[in-house]
């Protein structure tokens, strides 16, 4: 077994994301975000967050992370997007709603605090009958003017998990951490003591993620993380004959990443949720961590099988055979 952590966000804080939400003249929305998607699904979850923050059907929102003039997101790295970008999106949605209230109050000579936004319906509290408009009418009025005052309704939001705090030179103190996720991994392996090969038969990995914004994508991340972690654990090396560096892989055929053939016969996924105070609806990032569970879980299962603690990765057949030889020779590996 293995039990590991993954910190969310870049080290030390000061790691912002920005978001912009534009209300289009027909009452639909465009969410502009700088978060790049490597396949983990940033636009998908940020659209979910935006739909909740605006209280509108998700189909009304287009997410673009490939336009010109994107607002800044420090990077898609450090499992930071799920913790940080949702705050930027929520702040942009709140800013947009504030502008809508102000514009609406101006048109109806009311107080912005009295303007109620219920999803796609806007009215002045206590005067609903006379003032009610759909968001489409609001958007059209603000955009085209005509009988209304024109206004550029564009919400902006930014957030970072605290200001950057450099390491203290004496103690290394760096107290600012966005959030920490927790993983537990279990492996069952078969070790061929003749050839040294390791076959992972069953694997389970659970991540405590605060709140799974999208459980399907969480599961996919755990799945993908397994492959990177299992490659790290068992097969992948850019210098397989180190200290000689003259031989290096140059095609996929000689760089041994796990394939479907290496996938365990049984894979168990689990999600646990303990809402984190720093996250939107409790959500924190975890995805990179799912690569960290497999190496120690596999190493631990190998120990269980052959009674040796292997201390180097990747645990290639050669490493296994040498460890078995050393064990036989009575030398502690």
């Amino acid at each position: 077994m293995a039990y590991v952590l993954h910190p969310t966000g870049n080290k030390g804080g000061g790691d912002p994301s920005h978001a912009v939400i534009q209300l289009k003249p027909d009452g639909t929305y465009v969410l502009l975000i700088g978060a790049m998607d490597l396949g983990q699904g940033a636009p998908t979850i940020l659209r979910q967050v935006a739909a909740d923050a605006l209280g509108v059907p998700i189909e009304k929102i287009l997410v673009s992370n490939y336009d010109n003039l994107l607002p800044l997101s420090v990077s898609t790295s450090g499992s930071r997007v799920t913790l940080i970008d949702p705050h930027a999106v929520v702040n942009a949605a709140e800013d947009l709603k504030r502008q809508i209230r102000e514009w609406f109050a101006q048109q109806h000579e009311a107080n912005p605090e009295d303007v109620e936004i219920e999803g796609e319906t806007v009215y002045v509290r206590g005067d609903r009958e006379r003032t009610v408009m759909t968001m489409e009418q609001v958007a059209m009025g603000a955009a085209w003017g005509g009988g209304y005052e024109p206004a550029s309704l564009i919400g902006r939001g930014a957030w970072q998990p605290g200001k950057y705090h450099a390491h203290d030179p004496e103690t290394g103190e760096m107290p600012n951490v966005g959030a920490i996720s927790f993983g537990a991994a279990l492996a069952e392996v078969e070790v061929d003591t003749e050839t040294g090969t390791v076959d992972v038969l069953r694997f389970a990995q659970v991540w405590e993620v605060g709140k799974a914004i999208n459980p399907l994508l969480v599961r996919q991340q755990i799945n993908g993380g397994y492959c990177i972690g299992a490659g790290f654990a068992l097969t992948e090396s850019c210098y397989p004959y180190f200290p000689s560096v003259e031989y290096a892989p140059e095609k996929m055929g000689d760089y041994f990443m796990p394939t479907f053939e290496d996938y365990p016969q049984q894979m168990i996924f689990g999600i646990e949720e303990v809402p984190h105070p720093n996250g939107v609806q409790g959500a924190k990032g975890f995805s990179e961590g799912s690569a960290s569970g497999p190496p120690p879980a596999i190493a631990s299962a190998i120990h269980d099988a052959i009674g040796v603690w292997i201390t180097e990765f990747p645990i290639t057949p050669e490493v296994i055979l040498r460890a078995l030889e050393a064990k036989q020779a009575g030398v502690e590996s």
Partner: peptide, 22 residues
């Protein structure tokens, strides 16, 4: 180690869930 404080921890909960599922 660098004096950060652990908040919203789900450490034991993750392990319990893994045990249960396996």
């Amino acid at each position: 180690a660098s004096r950060y404080i652990v908040r919203g921890a789900g450490a034991l909960e993750a392990m319990k869930k893994a045990a249960e599922l396996a």
